[in-house]
Computed example of a mutant assay.
Amino acid sequence: MSAASRAPLRSNRTRRVRRAALTAGAALAALLVSACGSGGTSGGGGNTNFVTGTDGIATVAEGERTPAPDLSGKTIAGKTLDVADYKGKVVVLNVWGSWCNPCRAEAKYFAKVSKAYAGKGVQFVGINTRDATSGAALAFEKDFGITYPSLYDPTGKLLLRFKKGTLNPQAVPTTLVLDRDGKIAARSLSALSEERLLKMLKPVVAEK
């Protein structure tokens, strides 16, 4: 084969390698955002019915909310839990991992607020994800004084049940507030201070 005929082959091969590198880079970027981010943007198209404020908290009006998906399974302590059993209460869902630094930053606030609202019709539930073993997750809860249960979701299967275009989890940590009918009322895609957590929670608790 002449040098002239080999040139187009090298050119095609180079283009293929570049395309593969770009695809891999995009996939890696998406993984990093979902793995442990300090924030994110809302996904989905069309009329999503939610509004994101300048504080990064997205909210949905009462009549336009969508139900949370089936969130049931084993907790990191090995017990059975179904979030639907808490219907009638306001539920705070926190997606976290023991490996996630922003999750560590917000954990003390979740421990404090969950105890303060325990007798006010509010239930906190964690969704622990991407921890290879439940041991690391249990140690995290002990370190930060977290007493509410957490579903164990190491591969993220529970998170994939949320529909695109809704207030779905897109980062770790993500916090969702469900109203008393089990519908998603608010979402944050970043670590929360006590002030911002209460800003999400109080309006939903006040609903009748």
Rank of each mutant, 00 (worst) to 15 (best):
M1C: 09
A3K: 04
A4P: 00
A7Y: 06
P8N: 05
S11H: 07
R15P: 15
V17L: 09
V17G: 01
R19N: 10
A20V: 09
A26M: 12
A30S: 14
V33G: 07
V33W: 11
C36F: 13
G39S: 12
G39M: 13
G46W: 00
G46R: 08
N49G: 06
N49W: 08
G53K: 11
T54A: 12
D55M: 14
G56Y: 08
T59L: 02
T59E: 01
A61Y: 02
E62F: 05
E64M: 02
S72D: 03
K74S: 15
D85L: 05
L93N: 05
L93I: 12
N101F: 14
N101Q: 11
A105G: 07
A107V: 15
K112W: 08
K115D: 11
Y117K: 13
V122T: 10
V122N: 06
Q123F: 03
V125F: 06
R130Y: 03
R130C: 00
A132E: 12
S134V: 15
G135E: 08
A136S: 12
A137H: 01
T147Q: 13
D153V: 10
K157D: 03
F162S: 09
K163V: 05
K164D: 07
K164A: 06
L167C: 00
A171T: 14
P173C: 08
P173R: 01
P173I: 07
T174S: 00
T174A: 04
V177E: 05
I184V: 15
S190Y: 04
R196Y: 00
R196Q: 12
K199L: 15
P203G: 10
V205M: 08
V205R: 01
A206D: 14
